[in-house]
Design a protein around this nucleic acid. Structure first.
Length: 301
DNA sequence: TCCCCGAACCTGGTTACTTCA
DNA sequence: TTTGAAGTAACCAGGTTCGGG
């Protein structure tokens, strides 16, 4: 999909995690065997013998190569629907041999939902020269992406019926629809996190600025307290005053403070006694109500 | 060649349901 | 018959891998 930012947000915060972590192949193999037990309707726990296979890369290659063929035979009718349903607008280049128990248990096709190895890419052999199953990469068409986006806007999770229906409509596998929704939810959350982060950053900046300003005002007031005779010579503090009766904000006249007490200064002090200070608050750049998670249409499962 | 995006994948947790002692 | 433990299946969030643009 070419859309860079479907929400129109262009934020550069990177939340990526460290790379170069080893792939969890042993558990994958473990899961594979658990799956095969399930489909044989035997409820034994995975044999401890399997543990001896887990660390071997040759074993991994071996299972990656053959596990597609280990899939239990699926219902012919269902697989006729599922197999080879890759969108004509989509591009598929290779296949993944990695599978988990869920993959093969997913869907009524006995795992045919993820039958990439035999169902995609023009029906030919999906193995490369080395006999290893390479990972298939699919690019959803614009039409498919648009429909998925529309559906996601309506509800960001799918029930099984919706998933199957949508997959049928888009000529995709239910598993692909499921994965797309999972990834989409993750992207949405990441984006929301970035927005929240930006907002908090601005809040922090505003508070810092307000703190600086208040600190300055405190210093001014302290100076005023230490030298009351210079009160009239000082610029009025940034605090505004408001008449409690008419509720009009007033700034005390500066010129009158330069001289000794006169009629005008007397008037000023009288007014000052009459007025009460008004707190200055900085303007918020982002409305509170827009944060943090008001847009989440979370759905109970 | 490097970087980014996104599809596919893995793992662990949770929940609902079934089986069995 | 009831009950609780164990097993199973499905789903999801979070993180990772890796092919393609």
């Amino acid at each position: 999909m070419g859309e860079k930012d479907d929400d129109g947000l262009e934020l550069s915060l990177s939340l990526k995690c460290p790379e170069n972590l080893p792939p969890p192949f042993p558990l994958t193999l473990h899961s594979m065997f658990q799956h095969h037990h399930h489909h044989n309707h035997s409820h034994h726990k995975p044999s401890s013998l399997l543990d001896s296979f887990h660390s071997s890369s040759e074993t991994r290659s071996y299972f990656r190569g053959i596990d597609v063929n280990l899939r239990p035979p699926s219902t012919a009718a269902e697989c006729e629907e599922e197999v080879g349903v890759s969108s004509p607008n989509s591009t598929v280049s290779s296949v993944s041999g990695k599978r988990s128990e869920r993959e093969e248990n997913d869907g009524g096709c006995g795992g045919g939902e993820r039958g990439w190895g035999t169902s995609h890419g023009g029906g030919g052999s999906e193995e490369d020269d080395g006999g290893e199953m390479a990972r298939k990469k699919l690019r959803l068409s614009k039409e498919q992406a648009a429909v998925l986006e529309e559906t996601f806007k309506e509800h960001n999770t799918l029930n099984p019926k919706q998933k199957v229906a949508l997959a049928k409509q888009l000529n995709l596998l239910p598993r692909q629809v499921e994965v797309w929704f999972q990834n989409r939810r993750a992207r949405t959350k990441l984006k929301q996190t970035e927005v929240d982060c930006e907002y908090l950053k601005r809040c922090c900046e505003n508070l810092t600025e307000e703190n600086r300003r208040l600190q300055k005002e405190v210093n001014e007031l302290r100076a005023l307290k230490l030298s009351p005779q210079s009160y009239m010579q000082m610029n009025p503090p940034t605090t505004l005053t408001m008449c409690p009766s008419c509720e009009r904000v007033a700034v005390l006249p500066k010129s009158s403070s330069a001289t000794a007490p006169t009629a005008s200064t007397t008037t000023t002090t009288a007014i000052a006694r009459h007025l009460k200070p008004v707190e200055l608050r900085p303007q918020r750049s982002i409305p509170i109500k827009s944060w943090p998670f008001n847009n989440h249409n979370t759905q109970a499962t």
